[in-house]
Design a protein around this nucleic acid. Structure first.
Lengths: 191, 191, 191, 191
DNA sequence: TATGAATGAGCTTTCATTCAT
DNA sequence: AATGAATGAAAGCTCATTCAT
């Protein structure tokens, strides 16, 4: 039940937006009464918070799993990150879209917490890039912070156009973006 | 007056969101009455539409001006595009954020129109890239559509973190992103 | 309209209690819509506050008028006070009952204000009694504070049983209570 | 358990009011579940009725014990009554305050019953006064009904200001009020 | 050109109560 | 004896919009 409500809410928040989705909308979709909703959740906003928490904690856990093996090169980790983010769209696209759009409806305390976790995710990517620079896997004059923001821009923007049922698969898109990021748009000198 | 209302609305929509901003909020900010608002605008949504139209039409006009001179290389046009988009944040940040966040509140007719104009902007970037491939300015196996989406991802995501009053200027950020897109992250072979 | 709402609210609050009276109840009695209510009052509680303010300010004004003439004896002032309070029941009984019963529904700020004004009314009665003791109009071992509380107890309790349409008039009740307070229940010594 | 619930309810009803106290509030205070509440009480209102019954029956019993000994003078009985009522504040203040404030939430049948018992208490005081008049303990032109209401006003109003932990004890307050009622405020003639 | 009164639909939330277990 | 899930009605309040002036 609790989970049922959450799933329907994710679907509706993503489709119509948090403010535009009423508790009525949610309980109608789940075929229960408003009373039931408030038996399981203390407020509409606490439901949103829970959705945010589920999403970011899961993402951080996957990032942790990805970066753990010390044997991997920075380049492999970076590729893994892009794949992770694009794959998430297929599986968790609705949650992700909510995450990047409805955060402002959280109240101060929850908001700060989510921002902190979100920054953590970003900083860990920055570290991988810094590592790659030291390794000489990447070029020396890269700016890790800006490069991370570029990477996140590319992947997060995908939530606006990527169609999991379209011709282009998540892995193909990820592969293309990694290649673009690594090699750039210019022809190789010997071409 | 009309313009006054629009400016305050842009500020409030950006700060609090479209749904969270009431007509009351707007008219209080402008120091007029609700009646006045409805003298100038037929609905809250038509005001939003107008804000969207102003933004996209202005953007398309600037794109037109940028791409017109046939003497320019694809690379120069691309650089210009990134600079244009990042510069807009400083000057028009609020409108831009509304544009990418509140579009869903437009009703069908307006929505489609905006989407069409937005696609037009995107396709014209695609064309520049295609041109550059033919020119051999860019490498031959670039995917113009995906590359454009990467470029838009990087620039549009900037609205989430770019601080016009921060240390990094809009031009510096643009320069870095263009360089990253063109050369990629890997070291040059002879390095 | 504003006043109309207030009058009906006073009637309903007195009859059913503040919490038990819904905005719906009030607007139905006035034959307007809920929207109208909130056009005139910012909240149910602010309406209650206004009722309290009207009541206590009016009472203090009447007390002021009563105590002003310096020619009057303490005894006359005291008589006037009892008459004032009992007369108010006939004219303002509903407001009075609300005043002594629903104060706790005011929020902190308003509550403190009302308490302060209420104490002021009480202290001014105390002063009259103190004055009468110095004058030797009253006996020397009276406790002004407790005597005032006794007087207020007698009059305020009247709101529980006094029927303005009954056989006993307000003036008769007042006369009796003044006499009782002044002379007590015991027979005179020479009786 | 049953009693536990009742005690907590008395505390909460007195502190927050009947309507403002939810079943949830009560069961949380007792550390049981809502289901348990309804195992012991049929409704919130029946709990209130029971509190009222406990209070008034106890009060009547104490009055009975007080008035029984035929040897006592009317004056002694009256003094006993005032002491009884003021002492009750210290011991049963919460119940008393509920009694005089929340009666209106009882439904018709229970309400009438309580009113009847309450009147009985009042009438028995009236009888003592009537007795005292016949005895010539009190002056001949006393009105027993109004005098009783004055006495009840003084004592019941005490629930609004009397602080059992303050400097003034219940017995001292009672003594003062009895003295005031018996002798009045005026100086003795030979003073 | 501008106002202010009025509306009605809808919102989030609370709560006494029921009932199968 | 006690629980916890579920309900439905109603609460206070907000808000885009209308319209006579």
């Amino acid at each position: 039940m609790r989970n049922n409500i959450k799933q329907q809410a994710i679907f509706l928040f993503q489709k119509k937006g948090f403010s535009e989705t009423s508790i009525q909308d949610i309980v109608e979709a789940v075929h229960v009464t408003k009373g039931s909703f408030y038996y399981y959740f203390t407020s509409k906003e606490s439901l949103l918070m829970e959705i945010h928490m589920d999403y970011i904690e899961n993402l951080l856990a996957e990032q942790h799993r990805l970066y753990e093996p010390t044997s991997q090169s920075a380049r492999e980790k970076l590729t893994g990150t892009v794949v992770l983010l694009l794959t998430k769209i297929k599986e968790d696209g609705a949650s992700a879209r909510i995450f990047y759009r409805e955060m402002r409806h959280l109240q101060e305390a929850g908001y700060s917490h989510i921002v902190e976790r979100r920054n953590q995710f970003r900083r860990q990517i920055e570290e991988v890039i810094t590592e790659g620079i030291h390794n000489r896997e990447f070029r020396q004059n890269l700016n890790p912070a800006l490069t991370t923001l570029a990477l996140l821009g590319i992947t997060n923007w995908s939530y606006q156009w990527f169609d999991p049922d379209g011709e282009l698969s998540d892995r193909e898109a990820a592969a293309y973006f990694v290649d673009l990021l690594l090699h750039g748009m210019l022809p190789k000198e010997h071409e």
